[in-house]
Amino acid sequence: MENLISMRDLDPKHILNLIDKAGKIEKKEIWPDMRGKVMASLFFEPSTRTQLSFDTAMKRLGGEVIQMSGTKGTSVEKGETLSDTVKIINQYSDIIVVRHPLEGAARYISEQVRIPVVNAGDGSNQHPSQSMLDLYSIFKTQGTLSGLTIALVGDLKYGRTVHSLVYALSSFAPKFYFISPELLSMPKYITEDLDKLNIRYEVLSNFEQVVPELDIMYVTRIQRERFADPQEYERVKNTYIIRAAQLKDVKSSFKILHPLPRVNEIHVDVDVLPSAYYFEQAGNGVYMRQSILSTLLGVE
């Protein structure tokens, strides 16, 4: 594995190896020694959670971090090409973690540099480290990735975490329920891929009928910033508000995941349920990112 750009590049063996290593790091069975390694954290688009999670992951393994957060005051504002920017960063660091508003930017950057690149989100395309931490969370709570029934609820059109997760799970014989307002339904190019892979999925407008058979409910925020028309956002923003009362008849291993931040799509009365797993999920991100960074740098 040279880079982590898209879940479509990872085969099940890569996925399970990264999960296995994250588990060993979390249990303190191993401590990949990253002393002397420098991670360049290039966030062309603002993010706090993902950037801090990567920084923490690197620093807790003894590595160093250099950062760019937003493009204000940088050479990018002066008109430097993306290619030139990253070739310079290549001289300063051992690995690049990049978030960029343009789709495909991370893959392009990986072609411009000679060090590993991790895609920390490219527009509404992929966010594979989030998917890997989601998979790690699913594996930890279910003991397997295979044969699970998973509902994806919320913004399935622009939610890149959902897109990455669907591809990631598609190697493990899942059954999906896609539950969203029609305006925010799963893109056709993804459902076509699933059709080719013979993955079972159903498109629903309501989640309550399938709750008893679910292993995982993965909820996403309806993102105001993705709407050009504020009225459209107003029309769909409160379509799904999940409350504790709707989750009475669930499997004992059932868990609710959310990439966070949430707005109101999961009511706070859900937080006290044993099935609420979203805060632990965020914590799992550090172990998974340690696994990703150390694997790409060849540190065991």
Partner: peptide, 9 residues
Amino acid sequence: LRCSYCERI
């Protein structure tokens, strides 16, 4: 065709 960069078909 699928774009190798943005991955859309």
